[in-house]
Each structure stands twice: as C-alpha cells, then as structure tokens.
Design a protein around this nucleic acid. Structure first.
Lengths: 196, 196
DNA sequence: ACATAATATCTATCAGTGCTAGATAATCTG
DNA sequence: CAGATTATCTAGCACTGATAGATATTATGT
C-alpha cells in the first residue's frame, strides 16, 4: 500500500495539471465575458477553449454557476488588493479619495467581472460561515478607512461601500454619464471625510 | 373605403382585448418573477398563463427581453410615484429621510421588480432620446430633493440615488444584514441633509 | 349572400442551452 | 501482465427563445 516516490510525483503532476486546467477555464470564462458578455459563456464554448469535451468541466465545477462563482471570487481578491494598494500609496488625508478612485477604476475597467461579483446573490452569501475569505478581505479594506471599534464605523463602511457600488453600477448600466465621474467622487469624499 | 361605425367599435374592442392581454402578460411575468425568480419566466410559461400558444407573445413583444423591459418601465413608474408621495407626505425638514425610506421600502418589497429595473442595461439607456419618461420621472424625484439650478445639485442627486441603489442592491444580494437598515439610513441622511 | 382578402392563431420545428448516463480508452496497482 | 481505477468521450435528455408554414377565424367588396 506504500506509495512509491514515483507515484507521488505522478500524483503531484496530475494535481498541477488539474489546477492548471481549472485556471484555464476561469480565465477563458473571464475573457469571453469581458468581450462578448456572460450569455456567451456557455459550457460548450468553454470546453472548446480548453480543447476538452463538455463533461470534463463538470469534473472541475459543480455547475456553470460554479464557474461564475470562481471568477467572482478571483475578482474580489483583485479588488481587495487594488484597494489595499491605493490605501498604502495615498498621502495622509486623502486615503478615502484614493480608495474610492481605485474602486471605481476597477469596476470600470472590468465591467463583466464586476457584474458577476455582485450578481451571484444567493450562492455566495456574505455574513455567513461560508463567505469566501476573498470577499471578507475586500470589505476589510473599507473598515480600515473608518477606524473605530464601535458598530458605527461598520455602518459607515457599509454606507461608503454602498455608495461606491451604486455609482459603479449606475455607470455600468449607462444611467450615469462617465464624464462627470470626477465631480461625483469629489462630492462623495466630501461627505465621508468629515466627522459628524 | 369608409369604415362603418360598427367596424369602428369592433376595431376598438380588438384593441382593448390586445391591450388587456398585454397587461396580462406583464402581470404574469411580474408575479412569476417575484415568486420563483426571473429564470422561471419563460415564454412558454407565460403563454400557458394567458392560455395562448407560444408565438402569440411575439405579437405583443419583440422578444423575451421586451417583456422584461415592459415590466421594468412599469416599475419605474411605481417607484417614481412612491417617492413623490413620500416627498409630499413628509414634514418640513425630513423629506430626504422620507424619500430614502420609501425608496428602500420599494426595493425590499419587490426585489424581482427592482432587479429587472436595473439589470436591463443596454436595452434602455438613460441619457438618450429613447429613455422612457417613466425613468425620467423617477429620477426627477431626486432632483426635487436638492433644489438649485447648478449642475452641482444634479451631481448630488445622482450621488444620493447611487447611495440608495447601492444599499438596496447589497441588501438584495444578501451582503447587508437587513437588521441595521435604519442605522444606515440615518447615517446616509446625515450626510446628505447638510450643506457643504 | 357569398367569394375573396386579411387577420389571428396554432402546430411543428430549429438551433442552442445545461447537464448526465453509459461506453471506451488510458493509466496505475498488486 | 491481469485487474481495478481513473480520465475522457459520444450520445442523449429536457428545456430554452424564436420562426416558418399551415389552418382557422373574421372582415370586406360586390
């Protein structure tokens, strides 16, 4: 029953291959979504992209939705990192503006990614044991902006997130003219930088 | 070639029937969406509901999306009316809070309707000649809240709308606990009632 | 009143979707 | 090297939105 070293190396290689293929699927889904919309991200299309037959995808993901979820989680990780970077880079006093700009820049530059991050409603709840750490990490960047132990600072963080999300979403769905985005951010920062 | 009065009455009755059927379709779509989600609003299901064959729906709407659009437009009309009512009912000084509460109440009580109103992105653009008046009417309620001729008040209106939309959306997708909604609204109103 | 034109509606079908069962090929294990 | 396990494929199901062509119903001109 003792697994030989050779067998170990083989098993490892297989695992690597599997993970690589998983990454390929996610990356293809993301690329197609960004170029042609999520409705064109079909299981058949994805299996074509990775040159495997259709059922192979179900060895990596439970369902089509599972693929979208994986893309979304990747998106939350990237968004969190972008915000963290913006916070660290900012000069004293305008961290809020810096993070706001980074958030909206992320949403604008990857609209399909942003879309899937917030349309996977029921499958990935937030305040739950099953909430992906990537999602928590992203939200923690907001909490850092409004330090304080009270539940009040948490409410402010949520509100700031909501405002940014609203701007991003109304821009993405063509309700807002992109031209006035700077004015919007300025007005937003004005209202959140002050102590009330 | 002169159409007789009888023929006129018949034509009118036919028109009435057609409009009634159109209303039936929209109402069925809305009901099913609210109870079972938009993915269960299929053309076949709708044709069942009105006891006609499937292709009949295409005499009323160009496509399935056209049905969703019609539901969304109806939603904007109702949202605008709800906000107008809240504004008129409010005591002097807390119109902003009153409208905010009405907005979130609308979104919470008809989540599927709210969803379709903001997910029909490209098919109904905002700042366009083809923007439905119902959509303009709803947004005009925000403009009334922040009177002033300058473009600044328009930016504030947009920002307020965005904040409410963000709250509504993050609540709908289970990112926010509904229990703290009152605190959020209070913090939001604080930030928008003041003059900066 | 009746043949003809126009309208309303249906049945049947298309191509495409997510997903799965069952068969086959490739690989590992004792 | 035989037997078990794993990887992969082909073929199919039930469903979707949408449309073509046939059929029934209604209106119109003489």
């Amino acid at each position: 029953m003792a697994t030989t070293p050779a067998a170990n190396r083989i098993a490892e290689r297989k695992l690597r291959d599997k993970q690589a293929r998983r990454a390929q699927i996610i990356s293809a889904a993301r690329r197609i979504a960004e170029l042609e919309g999520w409705s064109n991200v079909t299981v058949r299309r994805l299996s074509d992209e990775i040159s495997y037959s259709q059922p192979v995808l179900y060895a990596h993901f439970e369902s089509r939705q599972g693929i979208l979820d994986a893309v979304a989680v990747e998106g939350f990780q990237e968004l969190g990192l972008a915000m963290e970077k913006a916070r660290n880079r900012a000069k004293r006093g305008n961290t809020i503006e810096s993070v706001a700009a980074a958030y909206l820049e992320f949403a604008a530059s990857s609209p399909a990614l942003y879309e899937v991050m917030f349309s996977l409603s029921l499958s990935v709840p937030f305040d739950d044991a099953a909430t992906p750490p990537e999602l928590r990490f992203a939200f923690s960047q907001f909490l850092e902006l409004f330090p304080g132990q009270s539940s009040k600072s948490e409410v402010i963080s949520e509100l700031f997130w909501a405002s940014l999300h609203g701007i991003a979403e109304l821009t993405r769905t063509k309700r807002f003219k992109p031209s006035r985005q700077k004015e919007r951010v300025r007005a937003l920062v004005e209202r959140f930088a002050i102590k009330i």
